[in-house]
Simulated assay, not measured.
Amino acid sequence: MAGHQMPSESEYDGGGQIMKRSSITSIALMWLLFATCLGDTMGSTISVKDDLGRIVSLHKITKRIVSLAPSTTEILFAIGAGKLVVGADEWSDYPPEARQIPRVGPYMRPNIEKIAMLRPDLIVVASNVIPKNIVTDLEQRLRCPVFVTAPRTVATIFSGIERIGKLVGKAKRAQRLVAQLRKRINKVKQRIRGRKPVPVFVEVAPPPSLMGVGVGNFIDDAIRIAGGENVLKRLHSRSDFPLVSLERLMLLNPRIYVIAAHGSMGREQALSQVRKRIGFNQLSAVRNDRVYAVNADYLFRPGPRIVLGIIELARILHPDAFAQRK
């Protein structure tokens, strides 16, 4: 296995044959993890269906969790299971306490050996960032339950939070959290009720490879809830994040232009940045100073903070609705 050196010819077992340290280490780790997964059994089995339609069952109390996506790490902390997280992917940075969790590599290529050494009894994965074959490989090699969340709507984000809560013994906390999130969304809906959806483009990546949020995903659903009309629905593209030419963008001509910003970017900075781009001054949104920035983590991580993204978008799309009442 990668990361181990081959033994020298002087390293023999009792029968005089060369032993491969990497193989011994790997086998030992697998048996250690298997033994851990068999311990602490509980009286009844907890079973939930994940977003791949798989039944995930736990026969023991969850004490050690590895999270392989920033969104699932946020969910676990939000429902009071943060102390159970013993390993996380390298991008899990929220809440701030999550930065202290041991890393198990990038979410696209998690380090199996590191995960095994952490002896988890549950692994939580977001399949929109980890291919299915890796999910299958994780379960087969680590012999531990793997729960997969792959929401396509805001409602399925909430459903995933509740199912994870049930799986880790935090069902009531998860239900309370989801109830609070739904309440905040309902307040947004009340404010914008009866208003016509506003055509909007949400930028994922800037030119020269301009990319926007496509349709049929949870971000597109968040745009709809916030009172927006995703202009890329006119592209009839199946991609979640299609490439868009300037010519096509000019034809779509969104009234609002939103940059999904990584790091701190205010409205003035966003407007200044877009104005400097060749040809963008012809867009209605740019001519009318309707260019904004929204924290990308609010929009792109399918967790509790999606509600903050919806609220920000709604304020951008329908500012008068929020100015009417405090």
Rank of each mutant, 00 (worst) to 15 (best):
D221L: 11
V178T: 06
K196G: 00
G227A: 09
R191C: 04
L210M: 10
M211H: 05
R234A: 15
Q180F: 00
V202C: 12
K187M: 12
Q175R: 07
Q190M: 14
G228M: 01
R184L: 03
K233V: 12
I223D: 15
A222K: 09
R238K: 14
G227D: 13
R193H: 14
P207K: 07
K233H: 15
L181M: 08
A179C: 03
I219S: 05
S209Q: 15
N230C: 07
F218A: 04
V204L: 15
Q175T: 07
N230V: 07
P206Y: 01
P208F: 12
A222C: 06
K183A: 11
L210D: 10
F201G: 05
I223G: 09
L210W: 00
R224G: 11
Q190L: 13
A205G: 10
V202G: 01
K233C: 11
F201T: 05
V188P: 02
A205P: 01
A205D: 14
G214L: 11
V200I: 05
V178H: 02
Q190V: 13
D221H: 10
V198A: 06
A179K: 07
N186M: 05
R182L: 02
V215R: 07
R193Y: 10
F201Y: 07
A179G: 07
F218E: 05
R224Y: 04
L235K: 04
N230I: 02
I225Q: 03
E203V: 04
R193T: 03
N230P: 11
P206S: 01
G194K: 11
L177P: 09
V215P: 10
S209T: 11
N217D: 13
I192P: 02
P199Q: 03
D220L: 13
G216A: 05
L210G: 03
I219D: 13
G214M: 08
K183R: 13
S237M: 12
Q190Y: 04
F201S: 10
R224D: 15
P206L: 00
G194S: 06
P208G: 02
L235V: 05
R191N: 05
R224K: 14
I225R: 08
R193G: 01
F218T: 07
P206H: 02
P197W: 12
V200E: 15
K189D: 09
G216K: 01
N186G: 13
R238S: 12
G194V: 08
M211G: 02
R224M: 12
V215H: 09
K196Q: 14
N230T: 06
L232Q: 08
V204M: 13
L210K: 03
F218D: 08
Q190D: 15
A205C: 01
